[in-house]
Amino acid sequence: MTTAASELATYNFAYLDEQTKRMIRRAILKAIAIPGYQVPFASREMPMPYGWGTGGVQVTAAILGPEDVLKVIDQGADDTTNAVSIRAFFQKVANVAVTTRTRAATIIQTRHRIPEEKLTTGQTLVYQVPIPEPLRFLEPRETETRKMHALEEYGLMHVKLYEDIARNGHIATTYAYPVKVEGRYVMDPSPTPKFDNPKMHMSEALQLFGAGREKRIYAVPPHTEVVSLDFEDHPFEVQSFDKPCGLCGAENVYLDEVVLDDRGGRMFVCSDTDHCEDRRAHGHCGTMLAYGKEAAR
């Protein structure tokens, strides 16, 4: 601990001061007690701009301990800028163990994906949230949206989904797809693809949501009902993909499109990099990977 202690000398453990942590911790406890309800909190300025996950970082900093193993993902990937920098941030200010393996992590901070691997008891998923209010684009006034939540008046949201159907013949919302938590609060699951919505339902893991600029924290406890809004004649459906992952051959996972050249070449690969690497390590092989191997020979 001696080298670690000297590196930490200029910051409190996990960057935030203790009073800030207490304030965030109290907000987290109330958020858990009222699933899906957005608890206002005194969001602090963080050493990164709004939009880079300041809400998620504050939540992680408030719950993180020296025993934790942290994983950070950005659109499913461990190796993109946002994920790398937040991981490095917590290594520096908390000297915490980090991993890219979903299974090994106790806290997973995420930007816009839920890992493919089923989360387990004892894991906490921390979402970075840009706009926590699902009704915000329908009603700009906070006083009004708050009243709508208070009165459980969510007709407007169904009108929005209905207008989708009227215009496009189907519900065209593909990300930040609104959910109802435990039959009470309508909640924005953050801009995760709707593909991930079913994973929130009855999850084993605790899910915490932090919105730094908008100063809100909300939560979904484990084993809690999370239902995507829909209509009887237009039931909720997740995206499906024509082809499996080009690298690991996985089906029923969320895929990213990667443009390969300027002649229309493209491939679809797992958005969850850990899931893809793990499958390849276990011998699974997609069509593009086989091609790559042959080309290498």
Partner: peptide, 13 residues
């Protein structure tokens, strides 16, 4: 404080 909070958080959840 962190350890006590995590216990309370886990129990509240």
């Amino acid at each position: 404080a962190q350890s006590v909070f995590r216990t309370v958080m886990d129990c509240m959840a």
